[in-house]
Simulated scan of single mutants.
Amino acid sequence: MKSTSLTAVLGLSLALGTMPSWSADDHSAPSPVATTTIQIGAHDVPVVQGGLYDRFRSNPPLSVIAAEAPDVDLSWFKGIAKEKVDIGFESWSPNFYYENSRVTAIFTADLARLRALMPPEVLAQVQPLQVWPGRGVVALTAYAYHYCDNDSYNEIGLSVVTNQPGASNWGPLSLLGQSRAGDFWGYVLKLPVDTELARVRGVVGYNLPKWLTRIDYSEGENNVVVNIYDSETQALDVTLETRKLDVSSSKENLVTTRFTNIDPQGQLTTGYSTSRQLRHASTSAADAVKLTLTDGSLSRFIASLKLGRMVKYEYVPDFQAALYAPQPLKP
């Protein structure tokens, strides 16, 4: 399986956040900034005053991005046209993510539990891939969106790897086929974010299971540490600590990732993103990832999946993405 990204799919990232300006060399936590309130659907949402979303509503001219982030290569985005869409509110598709980082840990999990967590309507179209008897595959991904159409934010994706709708489910052979094609399918179980803008856009516009909570994504000299907090108790819930890998010899590649879910009207929908991975590396070494669970709500949910062996770890310190609005899923 090539290391492009089994899991760009598996945690799909959407909308938005905090930071009116940005430098390519500065991934530190932003200082407090002034906010203003806008309306998205029926929701009053605080956004960064003067930030990209406040000014352009997901459609900033590339000339503005070039001026604010002159070190970012925008050549890829110049070949992608945007269009105005109605996704419960007026927006533009695709959303552009200019500079981002992620780490992903892929585990085996209890197949029966994964099936039980997916709605029957979705299961009628896609099923978890069985990599060996009784075991499916899930991916836990931490995203740091440093600079995008919707400002900046952090996100955690927990997703099931599935077959393509309408296609046969041949387990590991289907997984291999998706990898060779660079075209992956998944079902998103959990997707907490740390800005209200990201939460509202994701829930209203993309039908995704988002909620607002504190997420700390920090980089040390040799590792990445992500702390996720319980939204109700504010106590530390999950810690994902991963090792930085050598990305000096990695080559740029493109990966398409897709998800299937249900909109508020009960209709099956599908969305997708394309990622341009600029620097990336992977390993199957067990000591590259340390996952620490507590008695928090997300920890208990992860524990219920009965995670097994880590199949793969992906370190992607530099990628760009275009996220497209969801469409009705054709039978």
Rank of each mutant, 00 (worst) to 15 (best):
T7A: 15
G17S: 00
T18C: 07
P20W: 08
A24F: 08
A29W: 09
T35I: 11
T37E: 15
L52V: 12
D54H: 02
R55L: 14
R57Q: 14
N59C: 12
S63Q: 13
A67W: 15
V72R: 12
S75E: 10
F89R: 03
N95F: 09
Y97M: 01
Y97F: 05
Y97N: 03
N100E: 10
T104W: 07
E121T: 08
L129H: 04
R135N: 01
G136N: 04
A139N: 03
L140T: 04
Y145N: 14
H146Y: 12
D151T: 00
S152D: 01
G157V: 09
G171M: 10
G171Y: 01
L173P: 05
S174C: 12
S174D: 04
S174L: 14
Q178H: 08
Y187E: 06
V188E: 09
V188F: 06
P192C: 00
G202H: 00
V204A: 02
L212F: 13
V225L: 15
A235H: 09
K244H: 05
L245F: 03
V247D: 01
T260L: 11
Q267L: 07
G271P: 10
R276A: 01
K290Q: 04
T292W: 01
L298W: 05
F301H: 11
S304V: 11
E314T: 07
Y315P: 13
F319S: 10
A322L: 02
A325S: 06
P326M: 07
Q327V: 12
